[in-house]
């Protein structure tokens, strides 16, 4: 076991891990941050997406030891300290961008990365950016709308067009 230290959602954390311990496992098991989900083992579903030093990465395809000293952001750190949802989270609720919720943490983290790169993405750009995030419930329709709404673009109100 080797000790690893990093900053997660603004908090300094450390723990003992094996070489093979994935960042997703460190978050879930060592830190109890179970909002980061693991939905596949081929690095495709994106339920595990977190930000490492500001970049979206698949935490199931990165070793915890490779995150030594890194600044990690997970779904648990997205809302304000008083619990107020951030603009993306709120848009996902407003536009019904989630159903079972399992892919949602990764979707929200990917959406955040997208909007940082491209503050006003088109529908096609959003769909393209979500290449590595699989949702089985929503058909993506409302996820796309939620992200457009979160970027401040006009989206018709849900179920009212």
């Amino acid at each position: 076991m080797t000790e690893v230290s990093m900053v997660v959602n603004g908090r300094k954390v450390s723990g003992n891990v094996e070489g093979r311990t994935l960042l997703s496992a460190f978050l879930r098991e060592n830190l109890g941050l179970t909002g980061t989900h693991v939905g596949c083992d081929t690095s495709q579903c994106g339920a595990c997406v977190v930000h490492v030093d500001g970049a979206a990465v698949k935490s199931c395809t990165m070793f915890a030891l490779d995150a030594e000293g890194a600044d990690v952001a997970t779904i648990e750190g997205q809302a304000a300290p008083d619990g107020t949802l951030n603009v993306i989270q709120q848009a996902f609720q407003d536009y019904h961008g989630l159903q079972c919720g399992f892919c949602t943490p990764g979707m929200v983290m990917s959406a955040a990365a997208l909007l940082k790169e491209n503050p006003k993405p088109s529908e096609a750009e959003i769909r393209d950016y979500l290449e590595g995030n699989i949702c089985r419930c929503t058909g993506y329709h409302n996820i796309v709308r939620a992200i457009m709404a979160a970027s401040g673009q006009d989206v018709p109100a849900v179920a009212a067009e």
């Binding site: 779904i75 648990e76 997205q78 989270q89 996902f92 919720g101 929200v108």
Partner: peptide, 12 residues
């Protein structure tokens, strides 16, 4: 709006 969303959107 779905009330269950709050916990799913915050990792809870």
């Amino acid at each position: 709006k779905r009330r269950e969303d709050v916990r799913f959107l915050t990792g809870e």
